[in-house]
């Protein structure tokens, strides 16, 4: 009478998925851009609006693109780590100041420190859309050929730096 065991079997399968599901993060959406060329942008610098930065200028080096804003609360959480990383000189960090006001952004950097080689502005979030940004902060690792290799959603943590980002950078630079 195996057919009476079928409901139980179906239930066991279901429980398996639910158990795995408990350890997943349903709100993190992996980026389809990984392994693809980073979208090209050209935008004003935050500090010197009369100067522009084009993403192609960074070809040939490994760099981080960190999306941040002065209104973003969890950016404050990762900021000390970024400042420290910048000080170590391992990798240049470029900031994308996302949907922010210039004076507020500058004031924020004064207060918390400026880890960025330069920051470019994206007042209307258009570069953000190209990069698939949906929650700030986000951090992209981009290689020498301008290909996105990794995307960190949410604040950078000690753990994510040590386990993923730094080893990856070493590999890409090497």
């Amino acid at each position: 009478m195996t057919r009476f065991l079928l409901p139980l079997a179906a239930f066991i399968v279901l429980v398996g998925f639910l158990a795995v599901g408990l350890n997943l993060k349903p709100r993190e959406v992996p980026s389809p851009l990984i392994g693809k060329p980073a979208p090209v942008f050209q935008s004003q610098l935050l500090h010197e609006p009369e100067r522009m930065l084009a993403s192609q200028d960074n070809l040939g080096k490994v760099w981080l693109l960190n999306v941040w804003a002065s209104w973003c609360v969890s950016c404050r959480e990762e900021h000390p780590l970024l400042v420290e990383l910048a000080r170590s000189g391992i990798v240049p960090i470029y900031g994308l100041n996302y949907k922010d006001k210039r004076d507020l952004a500058l004031q924020w950097l004064n207060q918390y420190g400026d880890p960025y080689t330069v920051s470019v502005v994206d007042p209307e979030g258009r570069i953000g859309i190209d990069y698939g940004v949906y929650g700030v902060p986000e951090t992209y690792v981009i290689d020498k050929n301008g290909v996105i290799r990794h995307k960190q959603i949410g604040p950078v943590t000690v753990e994510s730096l040590e386990k993923k980002i730094l080893p990856l950078i070493k590999e890409l630079q090497g």
């Binding site: 959406v29 980026s31 389809p32 990069y131 698939g132």
Partner: peptide, 8 residues
């Protein structure tokens, strides 16, 4: 949109 955000 799918190219940027995936099937999600």
């Amino acid at each position: 949109l799918v190219a940027r955000y995936g099937d999600f």
